[in-house]
Design a protein around this nucleic acid. Structure first.
Lengths: 354, 354
DNA sequence: CATAGTGATGTTAGCGCTATCATTACCGGG
DNA sequence: CCCGGTAATGATAGCGCTAACATCACTATG
């Protein structure tokens, strides 16, 4: 007495097992197993838990698989095991070397452990980030790496509800429930400003572009340092929402000259801008640092080679990527990482431009 | 009379449906269907084929899914439909802007069509590329984008056997079975060399680094142009396997000076090197282009700002990414692309350094 | 020499979704 | 009023793999 309709299909038929090669034409685990004369699970183990299979048999399985052009199906594996071996990584930009180097650190830590990174670019927009989180959650990532700490409310809901381990990179979070690896952008801004003060500059300007949270934190550091010295002047701060570029840095020099600024030093929120500024100063015959000091942030490769070389603050982005990935690996293994908030510090680099 | 052993399990039992939330704690399609009071397949259709579901029902499904925090499981979808909606993209380097911009073009074309890119970095090694192809084939990508045309024999076997549509980027292939989008690197080398000859330079050097096929093709173009002019001299060619960098370009200037070269112009195989060379010339007081002309390749952003500005050849890498992705989309739709070999050309840019 | 232990392999069931076919309701035309 | 056609939804059966348990052969132990 089954719920199905009586005898239905005359007889269950010969159960046409036609294992050889799936729909897609690719060989399956069952095909390999049949050829070797064993069961599929042993093939699975030969790949995933080699120590459980006798060496000679294992070798025979691998050889056969190779000769049949067998490639494991990751989707089937992920479905059956509930582990995608994938980490979603969201960064604001791919044309900014800072994030690319962070990615390199992440890759170098994840790949040897068998994890793959799924990279998404948010273009500095929390809304786009939310959209990407939604998309990438479909891949059931075993972990998530996010840049920065400003996410939309909906994004936060997704992340907490689905409870994939998540680590925030670049900025540091004080919330004890969250994990973060980075450095204090505010301290970086303060460090540079203090240096400029020590060098005797008194009318220090600041150029902020993109206006992402990290840029604004640097601006805060700059402001605090100048306020403490009683030298902060809002009129020496330029805020532009445009994306950063060498071109924009050069244009800012033109603008400062046109506005007849009284600045004796300008702190650009990153090295791209500062390099553009140096190039334009050279073009216009503005003597750096005598007439105008120029400072940057991040320490890009070219900054050690411009004329004059650029004073800047080096950020440990490769290390940030590595450590964030390492922290995530701990979490994915169910281990508690040594620290939930890892400050990797900054390195101030004094060069000729100040 | 079934092949299975008689009545076996006493009665088919209550078929313990415990649908609410899967192993992973996430809501499944069945959960959403149950809540709405419909069958799972309709939920599937509401997401994938919305035109097949009545608008009000569809809205009710989407709302319910949203409220339950339902996220489709991509692995299950891929397994059932044999479509991963994923494209594997292999590039040689991520710190080289050229490839990053290619990636941007690929993304911009694929994402709106619902495809995701799985990015792999080969570090200019065909062996590493082969390894990555093997790894990424596990994801059953619906298409593959490769950089360049030199792949290992094994890699070729994988690609032809598994027959995922594949497009080669950057270089052009003459093989009518393969698809490629790019520009002629050889022509680029020839273009620049011809320009230098026209400017009156007669002792033109060439610095090749990394020694990847594209660099060597540029070198070929340089050699052919000089041979035609009867001015080729092997002693003016420097070949270094090192990765490209500003630092190396600067070091090459030192080396040329130390070797007391008679070159009146040097064609660097890319802009990074050429920029480093310009920086170092400035440092050492070598007048460019009077004393020594400097030329690059690729047209990076900074090349328009150095002192002097850099003569170079602009490569259409963003367009290459876009067109390669478009070609792949055609193939994945089963359509034959308009052309199997797409030359996007090059733009010669004369500036102050020559 | 019975027994528990260990190592190697197999059986079964089901992950969450979609292809395929089936079903149902409703429509207009002859 | 029957019929075929269409639009909307459902039932069933897997996709290819692995978790969990089962089995079997062999070894060490008292």
């Amino acid at each position: 007495m089954t719920t199905r309709g009586g005898d239905g299909t005359a007889t269950p038929a010969v159960k046409t097992r036609k294992p050889r090669s799936s729909r897609t034409g690719r060989a399956t685990m069952a095909d390999v197993a049949e050829r070797v004369g064993i069961s599929a699970i042993t093939v699975s183990r030969a790949f995933k838990r080699p120590e459980l299979v006798m060496p000679e048999l294992r070798q025979r399985i691998l050889d056969t698989a190779q000769s049949m052009g067998y490639v494991p199906n990751q989707a089937a594996s992920a479905l059956a095991s509930a582990r995608s071996m994938t980490v979603a990584v969201l960064i604001p930009s791919m044309t900014n070397m800072v994030f690319v180097e962070t990615l390199a650190g992440i890759h170098d830590m994840l790949l040897p452990r068998g994890y793959r990174a799924l990279i998404g670019v948010t273009h500095y927009s929390p809304e786009e980030e939310e959209r990407l989180i939604r998309t990438y959650l479909q891949f059931q990532p075993d972990g998530i790496l996010l840049t920065g700490t400003d996410h939309t409310a909906v994004a936060r809901t997704y992340l907490s509800a689905l409870a994939s381990p998540t680590v925030h990179m670049m900025e540091l979070l004080d919330d004890p429930d969250s994990l973060s690896v980075g450095c204090s952008q505010e301290e970086g801004g303060r460090l540079m400003t203090t240096h400029l003060l020590e060098r005797g500059y008194r009318r220090i300007g600041f150029v902020a572009v993109q206006l992402d949270p990290r840029t604004l934190a640097r601006l805060d550091g700059y402001r605090h340092a100048l306020e403490e010295a009683g030298l902060y002047d809002e009129s020496r701060v330029w805020r532009l929402p445009d994306p950063s570029s060498i071109h924009l840095g050069a244009a800012m020099i033109d603008r400062l000259m046109a506005e007849n600024t009284d600045c004796d030093a300008v702190f650009f929120c990153n090295d791209d801008l500062a390099q553009g500024a140096l190039f334009q100063c050279q073009r216009r015959g503005i003597r750096v640092p005598d007439q105008l000091a120029v400072a940057g942030f991040n320490d890009l490769p070219a900054s050690a080679w411009t004329t004059p070389t650029l004073t800047t603050v080096a950020t440990p982005r490769y290390a940030i990527g590595r450590h964030a990935a390492a922290m995530l690996l701990d979490l994915m293994d169910g281990k508690e990482p040594p620290q939930r908030r890892l400050d990797l510090g900054l390195t101030f680099i004094a060069r000729e431009s100040t």
